[in-house]
C-alpha cells in the first residue's frame, strides 16, 4: 500500500499536481527515504525521455489544416446562405420568370 502511495506521489510530482502538504511530504521522503529517492530519480529520468516525443506540426501542415478547416467554414456559410435566402427567392421568382419568357415567345 505504502509503495502504491509513493508511486502516486511521484507521478503527481512529475505532473505538477502536488498540494502544499504533499510537497512537504515529498521533500521529507527525498531526505529520509533512499528507496523513494531512487524512485523519483527513475521517474524524472523517464519523464525527461518521454517528453522528447512531443512534436509540433511543420508550419506548412499547420497552415494547410487551418486553411482547409476555415475554408470549409465559409463553404458551409455559403450553403446555409443559399438555403436560407437565395433558394426561397428563386423558388418564387423562377416560375414567374419562366412564364414571362413563355409569354414573350
Amino acid at each position: 500500500m505504502r509503495e502504491d502511495y509513493d508511486h502516486e506521489l511521484a507521478l503527481a510530482y512529475i505532473q505538477g499536481r502536488l498540494t502544499q502538504e504533499e510537497k512537504r511530504e515529498v521533500f521529507h521522503l527525498l531526505m529520509e527515504d533512499p528507496g523513494f529517492r531512487e524512485l523519483m530519480q527513475l521517474e524524472l529520468r523517464l519523464a525527461k525521455m518521454l517528453t522528447a516525443v512531443k512534436a509540433s506540426p511543420p508550419q506548412t501542415v499547420a497552415a494547410r489544416v487551418y486553411f482547409n478547416v476555415t475554408a470549409s467554414k465559409s463553404e458551409a456559410f455559403t450553403t446555409d446562405l443559399t438555403k436560407a435566402i437565395l433558394a426561397p427567392i428563386f423558388k418564387v421568382s423562377l416560375p414567374k420568370l419562366v412564364s414571362l419568357c413563355q409569354k414573350l415567345r
Binding site: 512531443k54 512534436a55 509540433s56 487551418y66 482547409n68
Partner: peptide, 28 residues
Amino acid sequence: YADCVYSFLRFKLNDEYLIEEIMQETFL
C-alpha cells in the same frame, strides 16, 4: 491545441499524410 493533437497522432502513426488528414478531421 494544434501541437497537442499533432504530437498525439505522430506518436500513434507513422504516416505523415494520414496524420494530417486525421488532424484536419479532428479540427473540423
